[in-house]
Measured scan of single mutants.
Amino acid sequence: RYTFRTRGPEQMKRVVEWARRQNLSYRVEVHGDEYIIHAE
């Protein structure tokens, strides 16, 4: 189980790509310009 905090969509997309390659399920929360990605 991982939690990532990123700023801006570019970093968020990179984390999502990584999670997909690992076959993890993930969800993204948006708080202003901060993205929180939960993957497991």
Rank of each mutant, 00 (worst) to 15 (best):
T3K: 07
Y2K: 04
Q22K: 11
Y2M: 08
V30A: 08
L24T: 01
Q22V: 06
V28I: 12
D33R: 06
R20F: 06
Q11H: 10
R14N: 06
H38W: 13
R5Q: 05
E40F: 15
M12S: 02
A19L: 15
T3I: 14
N23E: 07
E34W: 15
V16G: 00
R7L: 09
E17Y: 05
V30I: 12
T3F: 11
F4S: 01
E40T: 11
R21S: 14
D33C: 13
V28W: 04
H31W: 11
A19H: 02
S25E: 11
R14L: 13
N23Q: 08
I37L: 04
R21I: 09
V28L: 05
E10R: 07
Q22Y: 11
A19W: 02
T6Y: 03
W18A: 01
E10V: 08
S25R: 12
Q11G: 12
E10H: 06
E29T: 09
R14T: 07
G8N: 15
Q22G: 06
V15Y: 08
R21T: 12
E10S: 08
E17R: 07
H38E: 10
R20S: 07
M12N: 01
H31M: 12
G32D: 08
Q22T: 06
Y35S: 03
G32C: 04
E10Y: 07
V15A: 05
G8A: 13
E17N: 09
H31R: 13
R1K: 13
V28G: 00
F4E: 02
N23R: 09
S25Q: 12
E40V: 12
R14K: 11
R1P: 11
I36L: 07
H38G: 01
Y26A: 04
V30K: 14
Y26D: 01
F4T: 02
H31Y: 12
V30H: 06
G32Q: 04
E10N: 07
Y26Q: 00
W18H: 02
W18C: 11
H31L: 12
A39N: 01
A39I: 15
K13F: 09
V16A: 03
V16H: 01
I36W: 10
Y26M: 04
R7W: 08
A19F: 11
V16E: 04
F4L: 04
F4A: 01
I36M: 04
E34K: 05
E29C: 13
M12I: 06
R27G: 03
N23A: 06
S25H: 14
E29G: 02
L24D: 00
R27Y: 14
E29A: 05
A39Q: 02
R14V: 11
R27M: 09
R1I: 12
M12D: 00
Y2V: 07
D33E: 09
R14Y: 07
R7K: 13
R27K: 10
M12Q: 02
K13I: 10
K13T: 08
W18D: 01
K13C: 14
P9R: 14
N23H: 12
P9L: 15
H38Y: 15
R21F: 06
R20L: 11
I37T: 00
V28S: 00
W18F: 03
R21N: 11
L24W: 09
R21M: 12
I36E: 03
H38S: 08
Y26P: 03
E17I: 05
E40L: 09
R5A: 05
W18Y: 03
Q22D: 02
S25C: 13
A39E: 01
A39M: 15
R21Q: 12
G32W: 04
R27S: 13
P9E: 15
Y2G: 02
A39V: 15
V16N: 01
K13P: 00
T6L: 10
R7H: 10
G32A: 05
R21E: 11
R5T: 09
A19V: 13
V28T: 03
H38L: 11
F4I: 11
V16K: 03
E10D: 11
W18S: 01
E34S: 07
E29F: 10
S25K: 13
K13E: 11
Y26W: 12
A39W: 13
T6R: 03
P9Q: 13
V16W: 02
M12F: 09
Q22W: 13
N23C: 14
G32N: 06
H31Q: 13
R14E: 08
R1S: 12
R7Q: 09
Q11P: 05
V16D: 02
Y2F: 12
K13W: 13
F4N: 00
A39S: 03
V30Y: 09
T3W: 08
V15W: 10
D33Q: 06
F4V: 05
R5L: 08
N23G: 15
L24K: 03
G32K: 05
T3G: 02
Q11S: 10
R5P: 02
R5V: 14
E17M: 07
K13M: 14
R5D: 02
R7I: 09
I37Y: 01
I36D: 01
E17V: 04
R7V: 10
R20T: 11
L24A: 03
H31C: 15
D33T: 09
Y2D: 02
R20H: 08
R5S: 05
I37W: 02
P9I: 15
A19I: 14
E10I: 09
E10A: 11
E10M: 06
W18N: 01
E10L: 09
E29Y: 10
V28Q: 01
K13R: 12
R20G: 04
S25G: 06
Y26I: 14
V16Y: 02
V30N: 06
